[in-house]
């Protein structure tokens, strides 16, 4: 089983098409532990509940423009909480302007992916994000052990 297969992923996007597109790509990488959210409130709720249940998400894909709360606001909300510092928050959005990319990176996005993205490019990004997660967790365990 690949290292990716153990990842827990949340896909937050108001469009069914994108949720399914990302789910398909994750499945190709053997990632089956996937949940979806269709707006910002639901995203916050699911991320918090999974953490409380002791099964936090490793990766949260965030669309920028979602109903109730935007992906950028969700990102800022969790980046203000140190207990979520090991979670990869990845913007997956059609917002492609440099100033928005910088805004998201400054807010703490682990990665920024502009739609449309091909399954193979998304797959490559997954490996990069997994490397980030490994580094982050090595640092965290070094700090607290």
């Amino acid at each position: 089983m690949s290292q990716l297969a153990n990842l827990r992923v949340l896909i937050a996007d108001d469009h069914f098409l994108i949720r399914q597109f990302v789910r398909n790509t994750l499945k190709e990488s053997k990632i089956e532990n996937v949940q979806t959210a269709a707006d910002g409130n639901e995203t916050i709720d699911l991320v918090q509940k999974s953490k409380l249940a002791g099964q936090p998400f490793d990766i949260v894909f965030l669309d920028w423009n979602m109903p109730t709360i935007s992906g950028l606001e969700v990102l800022s909300y969790f980046r203000a909480k140190p207990e979520y510092s090991d979670t990869a928050f990845v913007m997956l959005t059609a917002e492609s302007e440099q100033q928005n990319i910088m805004k998201a990176i400054k807010a703490g996005a682990t990665s920024y992916i502009v739609k449309p993205v091909s399954p193979s490019d998304l797959g490559k990004k997954l490996f990069e994000i997994n490397e980030w997660l490994k580094r982050k967790r090595q640092v965290s365990s070094g700090m607290f052990n």
Partner: peptide
Amino acid sequence: DAVGELTNMIFGQ
């Protein structure tokens, strides 16, 4: 839903 998202992607680019 699909046309809405395609609209976003196309005109975003």
